[in-house]
Amino acid sequence: MNSLLVAPAIMVGIGLFFGAILAIAQRFLKVDEDPRIEATNNLLPGTNCGACGQPGCLPFAEKLVAGEVDPGQCTVSTDEAIEQIAEYLEVDAGRAEKLVARLRCNGGHLQAHQIAEYQGFEGCRAADIVSGGGKGCAWGCLGLADCEAACTFDAIHMNANGLPQVDTEKCRACPDCVAACPRDLFELVPLNQKLYVQCNIPLAGEAATRLCKVACDACGKCVADAAPGLITMQGNLPVINYASGGEARPEATFRCATRSIVWLEREQFQEQESRKAGTA
């Protein structure tokens, strides 16, 4: 038997046979699907290694198109390929403004006192269901770090004052912390909106300041000092309406006695942060 001929013959035979079968199969068994899946799949390495946790590249591509996974979860692809996929899929989802999570409270341990001592599972929501966790202010931050635990990007850390410090670099404006906060204190705000109200107490006057040193007492000075229409009082709290056309300027914060309306440069609780860095 002439093996010199047999080998190439078998190889060619197999190649032709299966090539043909697959070609025919592709023609007749084709199932319509989102063309983006196919395209995304082509950008993937095609190793079907399963390292991403998906059963293969095609399912991964489907999830990518569905927006359920990040391209970066493919550990085999090069960075460029991942970028390419991201570009391909996010053509319409270009988000111009960077949003960050901001906390509508400035009452840490130093400003808002406890009226009772809480004992139990260390978590805001867990504490909140036990008579409000003992914090005098029933609207303010409990400081037990549910948001820190919920943040998948390691962007939130509790500072020395018991308030969550959002790292604006790391924050991806996912709504995890918004959902985690039992008192709904987080909101996603454009990073470049610097005028910000840091209080959530719907009480006015002394009733509010009795609970927290930095509570908004609804005095209304900020409304008067800001551009007309920019700030309005709603439910004893100032509400900033950027769409009103009035320019937001630091002046609005100058006469606030309790510092419940502030002008943010970047991080929300700057003084604590710089102190921490200084001591480190």
């Binding site: 139990g120 599972f121 978590g123 929501r125 867990a126 269901i129």
Partner: peptide, 8 residues
């Protein structure tokens, strides 16, 4: 408490 937290 943990169960109530979750329910909440």
């Amino acid at each position: 408490q943990l169960i109530r937290t979750a329910k909440d």
